[in-house]
Design a protein around this nucleic acid. Sequence first.
RNA 1: GCCCCUGUCGUCUAGCCCGGCCUAGGACAUCGCCCUUUCAAGGCGGCAACACGGGUUCGAAUCCCGUCGGGGGCGCCA
Length: 504
Amino acid sequence: MDKLNQTAEIIRVRFAPSPTGYIHVGNARTALFNWLFARQKGGVFVLRVEDTDIERSREEYERNLIQDLRWLGLDWDEGPDVGGNYGPYRQSERLELYHKYAKQLLDEGKAYYCFCSPEELEKEREAALAEGRMPVYSGKCRNIPRKEAEKRRAAGEPAAIRLKVPDEGIVEFDDLVRGHVEFDLKLIGDPIIVRSNGMPAYNYAVVIDDALMNITHVVRGEDHVSNTPRQILLYRALGWQPPVFAHLSMVMGKDNTRLSKRHGATSVDQFRREGILAEALCNYLAFLGWSPPEGHEVLRLEELVRLFDLSRVSRSAAIFDYEKLHWLNRQHIKMLPAEKKLELALPYLQETGLVGTEVTPAQMDWLKKAIEILIEGVDKFSELPQKFSLLFDFEPEKLDEEAREIIGSELAKKVLAAFIQKTAGLQEFNYEIFARITGEIKKETGVKGKDLYHPLRVALTARASGLELDKFIPLVEEGARLNFPKSILSCLVRLNRIKTSLNL
RNA sequence: GCCCCUGUCGUCUAGCCCGGCCUAGGACAUCGCCCUUUCAAGGCGGCAACACGGGUUCGAAUCCCGUCGGGGGCGCCA
């Protein structure tokens, strides 16, 4: 347990995903916790690719994985793409290593060949389950003499290699987040360490890799707790000292089942596309099961590194809350400089065709101002184009009920009539003119406040809600002169349209 | 079924290890008010939890036992 304090040795942790698709937020959290721990302790963070499942592993998945992790803001000191002194960092390139130690275990009589067929084993398992026992391998092949086993193998009989596990006793370990955990050896059968196709089994490969890579702390998901005793047994058989373990609780969906697609976005990639900031996602992920001693919740990566503490990680599963993620994202967006917001928002606006691929400096300048105003209260960047439709779309024929109601009152009609009359013949329009005119109307009719501004907003935007007009008018007037692919109508044009549309 | 882990507001959690400072704190969500040229944002305030049952103790969210709930595992997947 106190390997942490008692040694001056450098802390080495790893994140070891299998490249079988896009990286899930649950795994991302594991990666983040490892990274935070390493960075805070001045340790080493290793990326290792567990690609021994030939069926599911794809090279492109490794690229996705690296891309996602980098996007999150994580970096590693050793890994398949950056090298290091403990390589190779792909399990598929470490096969000789696994074979070497398997042979050693075989030679020392700590492991043996098993000729049982999968069908046979399946039958035994079912029988055990039916009797209410935990399915444990019978040890049938345990005592086949090595010579005989070699002969059968030479004859072409497929064989897996199993580790011999003591029949009695307990295996225990002190988990950094869960405390003391122990397992009864009676319930642990001899695990397969090398499959009959020659590939190492997961429980074996991790041990070889973690040990050879000098990993001091294994921080991983709770789903590995029950693998831990088997792995410890392997460390023992090899005469190695096991690392310190820390098992993180699972991330669940709203209905308390494992977070999956049906709960919404679950891959890092999806969040990135939606316009969730990496910092916000890290911030949120860090708070899934962990909280800093002081109450601040909106934290940047460096602050997380400073405050992070594995022993403060909670042991119970956490439900992924999109609302809170969005709130954090809003907070992080707010902290961004205007240039950065523009840079991040641009692709979304281009994608929806509001903005062309070529953007003039004047358009850029306008966009920066518009984004600064419209981003308020937006959960993620993908929602921004929707917000921009306030500026780009004007459809007086499609007023909603609320807008009709506002514009339908006697008072509203009076205001609109006056406004239209006072703007008739104007060649130019801006907020100063608007303010002057509304001032006059106020004086002449006595209408003020909401009664005055609501109808005017409906007239200028064709909707019941939107921006304050002192922000809206300058944006629209300037935007109207900028030749966007989809043009913005000036206020005077809008007024004309609404006039004909409503027959005023 | 068996094994392991876990159980504080709807959600994330603080407090638990070292019982009294807990009338259980914060954040998201929600509700209300304020601000206001709507909405939002912001400010202020409200609602809201120690799973249950037994102990131990002068005193228990905190310690012990049991029950129930939730999760994970039980692969020649990782």
